[in-house]
Design a protein around this nucleic acid. Structure first.
Lengths: 252, 252
DNA sequence: CGGGACTTTGAGCTTTCTCAACGATGGTGG
DNA sequence: CCACCATCGTTGAGAAAGCTCAAAGTCCCG
């Protein structure tokens, strides 16, 4: 039954001290992204309209063009977001991780699709509940605006990558940003120490994210490997041997 | 003195019934974008912290990396927004017109540059004034979130274009969206009647927007011209002879 | 009428894509 | 437990889309 999402608590409003409300304490996303903007008291109110949902790896839970009934916040796992052309060409617009929100819509239908890259846990809010929460807690809406503005900055960087960078620069940019995700040193200059981590997506996903073909992604990885900048224990596990050098190859 | 922006009212707070407050009535952007979300009463309050600013064609008024001191709303004219790489490669992330807002930032520095494509009139708000307005009028912040979400949809469409469309499809997509801007038929199916309008940007801007070279943009235009889908009276004035056919070439 | 900037067109080149084969990995069933 | 199969990743060779460089054409403006 791996194809059917398992809804842990299919109730619309949870009592204030229910396990759902309390679970935020233990949530991996409690102090990341949207929820980080809320006090323990406020998040209790948010939790009352939240449903906890699990998605197996590969499951699509947002379909481009379908009614935007829900809004999601990722508690665990990784998600790929994409748009497609009628003939099947696909552009992945982002890989989202813990604390990331998904599914805001103005038009009433989703403008993109979203799939679980691995087993994912989500907080789900239905549209109308969310609107009432906004009315009660403007802080949430304010934080959401902040997050949306930050998303926009990232989107503009991706446009620069897609429109103007070479294949090698694109792959280096990707490695650089994932190195930052796994060894975030905030404001300090990036560490020169090697970092190893797992990539939750395959080469085809990567190609569709970087505007390349899987072959070109693979060739770029191979070149970086030849140059001693990275290494692969297996295709998923990358070691960034010279993070500063990779960063220099991103061209900004 | 065309290089120096002319500030019409360099005062920070204007009295409620001042010409500034009343000018919103006559503003071309009064019922577009952000301002459209506000009642006549509310917009009076917004006008009290607004400065009206003019920019001559070509003037850069937002510089990537500089402190994000101001927030702008376009009253008249067209603006190009872009990011650049250190070696000069440029990606234009959007062409903004009347009613468009610009300059929100979370980090405290602008993530992009903005230049006037022609003579532009802007409403300018300083950061701190804007934050106080947000506190007083959550409706503005809510509308801003809505606008930001819509921006994000457009950005994702542009990523799809840059990552996955052919040169001809990119140029057709551009023509299609500008046809829509100039002959917006809302929900009804697009008109089959020809539309003529002026492009405020040159071929190099277009190339930097579409991830191409000026030569390729020109060649694509020439092909569409040969095929009888468009015509140019001069390089700025385009006639879209078969809007529906152009729309079909965008591939979505 | 002339000069500068922009646009168009052409020819050859480069990067990336396409197509194909080979290799590695992981899951499944005998 | 191992062989098999499917999927994914890597590598190579040739093709093609779009880029670079160059020259000619056009338009605007003084």
């Amino acid at each position: 039954m791996r194809d059917v999402p398992y809804v842990r608590r299919p109730i619309t409003t949870n009592p204030p001290n229910s396990p759902t409300a309390r679970q935020c304490h233990d949530c991996g996303a409690r102090h990341i992204g949207l929820c980080d903007a809320l006090s323990d008291d406020d998040i209790g109110f948010l939790a009352r309209v939240a449903q906890s949902v699990s998605m197996p790896a590969g499951k699509s839970f947002i379909e481009e063009g379908s009614p935007s009934a829900y809004f999601y916040d990722i508690n665990l796992g990784d998600v790929r977001v994409h748009k497609s052309l009628p003939d099947g060409r696909r552009q992945i617009t982002g890989f989202m991780g813990i604390g990331h929100f998904l599914g805001l819509s103005v038009s009433g239908t989703y403008a993109f699709s979203a799939e679980a890259l691995n087993d994912v846990q989500l907080c789900r809010f239905d549209r109308s509940s969310l609107l009432s929460v906004f009315a009660e807690f403007p802080a949430i809406e304010a934080k959401l605006l902040e997050v949306a503005v930050h998303e926009m900055v990232i989107a503009q960087e991706q446009m620069l990558l897609l429109g103007r960078k070479t294949a090698l620069e694109r792959v280096a940019s990707f490695i650089d940003s994932w190195t930052e995700r796994h060894a975030p040193l905030s404001n300090r200059p990036r560490s020169y120490a090697p970092v190893t981590f797992l990539l939750p997506m395959n080469r085809t996903d990567l190609a569709d994210y970087l505007g390349l073909t899987p072959e070109t992604v693979s060739r770029s990885f191979s070149q970086l490997k030849r140059d001693g900048l990275i290494n692969f224990n297996n295709p998923q596990e990358i070691s960034v041997l010279q993070p500063h050098h990779i960063a220099a190859m991103t061209c900004g």
